[in-house]
């Protein structure tokens, strides 16, 4: 973009705060965090409840009331603080955990999963787009509790010797954040 065409007038000073909040609410959670460091006017607009209410799940009040968590959270915290509180303190509902995720960078850009026997090239990896979940390939399955199981790949130990098996997860193109890996399980292929 041509820098010289930027707005000469101090738009932020003249627009009402609700209008700036509205603009920020149309961006992303990450842009809202960036916006709060732009200037004090943007900070109060970016931190406002009207912005963060958009980022919370639409039924967050019901989720919190139905959980074992203290439902006074809904009223005692600002929506932004509530959001980050929920990120760091998963809510327990129906014996499962509900996470509000802070992931970004996974849309359309795949993650490389790989499994191989160190020192050989018989490993097989795969690229998986983790978000949106609906587009996930068949080699993954939802487990109904917020976790997703993904087949990372297969390897074959040709000589049957001891060695190191490498399991890797890569995403080089852009920065990504928010993935939580619960564990890696190695299973014999025939008994899958």
């Amino acid at each position: 973009m041509n820098r010289e065409s930027n707005m000469d007038i101090a738009v932020a000073d003249q627009l009402p705060a609700e209008c700036i909040s509205h603009i920020i609410s149309l961006t992303t959670l990450r842009d809202a965090c960036i916006s709060s460091t732009v200037c004090p006017i943007f900070k109060s607009a970016a931190d406002s409840d009207s912005v963060w209410e958009k980022f919370l799940p639409s039924d967050y009040k019901q989720i919190i009331s139905n959980s074992v968590s203290d439902s006074s959270l809904i009223t005692s915290l600002s929506k932004k603080d509530l959001y980050f509180h929920l990120c760091h303190n998963p809510i327990i509902i129906n014996n499962g955990a509900m996470f509000i995720d802070t992931r970004y960078g996974f849309e359309t850009r795949p993650v490389d999963f790989g499994v191989y026997f160190d020192g050989s090239d018989n490993g097989e990896g795969r690229k998986v787009v983790l978000d949106p979940l609906a587009k996930m390939p068949k080699l993954s399955e939802g487990r109904g509790n917020g976790w997703m199981e993904i087949e990372m790949g297969v390897f074959f130990n040709v000589t049957g010797e001891d060695g190191t098996v490498v399991c890797s997860v890569f995403g080089f193109d852009r920065s990504k954040s928010g993935i939580i890996i619960q564990g890696v399980e190695l299973r014999p292929k025939s008994r899958r």
Partner: peptide, 23 residues
């Protein structure tokens, strides 16, 4: 406006909107 400031740096947003940083 939201589309034009998405995924941009703080410096970019300031310059885009002609904002003085008072922090």
């Amino acid at each position: 406006t939201a589309d034009r400031i998405k995924n941009k740096s703080v410096e970019y947003v300031r310059e885009f909107l002609g904002i003085q940083n008072d922090f």
